[in-house]
Amino acid sequence: MLVRVLFFGVLKDLVGAEQQVLEVEHEASVGDLLDVCRDQTSKQSEVWTRLAVAVNREYASRSKVLAEGDEVALLPPVSGGRP
């Protein structure tokens, strides 16, 4: 099945795209999709262990099962700054 993946911040630079349509197995989880994304990126980065994921604009856990046509956003830690 196909899902649309959005990349933001440092991830956009790392992947070299703002978005991609990716093929994943039926009932693939968020974690499975992350593995696919990371495997196709030649550059390693610690951001892969620190990012959050949103499915259809809501934060989702790694175990969430994806559905055809989902919009999956990979979100690096947000801008932060010292309080």
Partner: peptide
């Protein structure tokens, strides 16, 4: 450089993260 953010709160990344190794 992209500014380094704080780690996400637990409730945001609530799910098992171990598969990210």
């Amino acid at each position: 450089v992209w500014a380094d953010g704080e780690p996400f709160p637990e409730e945001v990344v609530s799910g098992p993260a171990e598969r990210m190794g």
